[in-house]
């Protein structure tokens, strides 16, 4: 199981290593509730070399890595 965290938006992604993953959105304050759709963890794919691959809006590989923290 691997857990990734987006420090910019407080989103957590848990990969269970068996084809399942869980996105946990933060319980942030009401004033900064919105999470942009381009948050790294919401638009990324499976880990590769300790990082997550960022996808475009069509789900294709952009060749970039997401700016997330593996915990």
């Amino acid at each position: 199981m691997r857990t990734f965290y987006c420090p910019a938006h407080g989103v957590t992604l848990i990969e269970d290593g068996q084809g399942g993953r869980k996105i946990i959105l933060p319980q942030v304050g009401m004033s900064n509730r919105s999470i942009p759709n381009d948050c790294a963890l919401l638009t990324c794919r499976r880990p590769q070399a300790g990082k997550l691959i960022r996808l475009d809006t069509n789900g294709f590989n952009t060749g970039q890595f997401c700016d997330v923290v593996e915990q």
């Binding site: 084809g19 399942g20 993953r21 869980k22 996105i23 946990i24 959105l25 919401l42 638009t43 990324c44 794919r45 499976r46 996808l55 789900g59």
Partner: peptide
């Protein structure tokens, strides 16, 4: 994103 052959859960 919901990758191929994976189950994605969002809370």
């Amino acid at each position: 994103t919901c990758p191929a052959m994976q189950t994605t859960t969002a809370s």
